[in-house]
């Protein structure tokens, strides 16, 4: 079954003279449990596409279906719920609350969901263990290294046992060794829990390991290649 299906997504910014088409007639169909890489040059519209399919941004025109249902048929509350329950996010920037503890950062989605401190902290520690940062739970988020922060962000993305993880350049600012670990972690989640992965990257080597690569140039899909190489 399709996890996410889009038809003719178009996103434009500005008006008249400054009109800019960031996405142009993008149609994609992502299956449950699939690993999809979105690749393209800087400014090609990768993040824009990811934000729109993750329901963070709305397209200028075109349709999106999640779990076989058009999002126009979801209420605002259901969309909030969907993002809280079924999506996990790794943004291009870390977006950690610098002064809060690592654990508090990781458990934020559960706090928003209204889960009690005891059980959310327990789950937070589990998620941190999964990324190998259990011992940093009490540290301030700000005191971690870049690679550690990225792992915290991933722990936060998987804490709600999401069905889909959206990751924008998850290994972008990591050394190859740490990048490798993150990569393995994401693939493990996909393999063991069947989590759908939608990952934006410009790293060709990483992209090769995905089931499918969607190439974007100037807001248009240029070609899609299938099969991990």
């Amino acid at each position: 079954m399709s996890a996410i299906k889009t038809t003719n997504l178009t996103k434009t910014y500005g008006k008249k003279d400054t009109l800019f088409t960031a996405l142009d007639n993008v149609s994609i169909d992502i299956q449950n449990g699939e690993k999809v890489a979105i690749i393209g040059k800087s400014g090609s519209g990768k993040s824009t596409l990811m934000h729109i399919v993750a329901l963070l941004d709305s397209p200028t025109s075109g349709d999106i279906e999640i779990n076989g249902k058009n999002i126009a048929d979801y209420s605002t509350k259901q969309i909030d719920q969907l993002r809280n329950d079924e999506f996990g996010f790794v943004f291009q920037q870390f977006f950690l609350n610098a002064n809060n503890s690592v654990l508090d950062n990781v458990t934020l989605p559960l706090k928003i969901a209204g889960i009690k401190p005891k059980s959310r902290n327990q789950r937070g520690l589990e998620a941190l263990r999964a990324v190998g940062l259990e011992d940093k739970a009490k540290n301030k988020a700000n005191d971690l290294s870049g690679g550690q922060k990225q792992r915290v962000v991933i722990a936060r993305a998987l804490i709600n046992n999401p069905k889909i993880i959206f990751a924008d350049e998850p290994t972008g600012n990591l050394d190859s060794n740490t990048g490798q670990k993150i990569e393995e972690l994401l693939f493990k989640l996909n393999k063991e829990q069947g989590i759908t992965l939608i990952v934006v990257t410009h790293d060709e080597d990483l992209a090769k390991k995905f089931d499918r690569r969607i190439n974007i140039k100037d807001g248009k899909i240029t070609n899609t290649t299938k099969g991990a190489k």
């Binding site: 719920q81 993002r83 329950d85 943004f91 977006f95």
Partner: peptide
């Protein structure tokens, strides 16, 4: 940014 993050993670307008 913090507000944006919380909203992205499904915190409602009302909250």
């Amino acid at each position: 940014k913090e507000i944006g993050l919380m909203k992205a993670m499904g915190m409602s307008k009302g909250r």
